[in-house]
Amino acid sequence: MTDTTVPNALPTELVPGRGGGGPASTRTVVAYGFWIFLLSDIIMFSGLFAAYAVLSGATADGPTGRELFDLRSAFIETACLLVSSYTCGLGALSAEQQRRDRYYLFSALTFLLGAAFLFIEIREFAGMVHEGSGPSRSAFLSAFFTLVGMHGAHVTSGLVWLIYMVAQVAVKGLRPHVLRRLLCFSLFWHALDIVWVGVFTLVYLMGIR
């Protein structure tokens, strides 16, 4: 029960996972569990978003978002993450079709775009700390570094996970349990992009006003 690409229409009492015909397929159960994890991760982010929204005015006479944020680099970061989400999806698709070379190609693109995103973000952070606008300057900057840094930490762990998945595909091949892990990875990567939509809207676009 690993191939769920074909719709299997059954009478209600025989549908797996609906009280009949046994449990749902492992793939469905794994992805659903990971979906629950992602939602709880997003709830954790909502706490950081709330802290940022509350503290965004508490600049302690320090620099404000309007002085600090560069929309150009925020736009490039957004573009990198969005296109990497797309290539990640195409990579997952290639893996489902057992096309390993295309999976490698799209994974490499995903990794490069994710790394470019991280590079721009770290450069931005380093510049701000260098100018004396580090996380200890004001409550606003503490909240900013916590929220954006937490997203960056997720992207970093996503990149590590991506390398690990490519290694697994190289060693074990595109077997069902590797495909399940790939599915979890692509869910994770798409969820990071969803969180970033909130970050660039709340922090950067509203912050420059």
Binding site: T4, T5, P7, N8, A9, L10, P11, T12, V15, P16, G17, R18, A24, S25, R27, T28, A31, Y32, F34, W35, A92, L183, S186, L187, H190
Partner: peptide, 10 residues
């Protein structure tokens, strides 16, 4: 007749 639960992301 009902479909089996969908897997997120698929």
């Amino acid at each position: 007749s009902v479909l089996e639960d969908r897997t997120p992301g698929v």
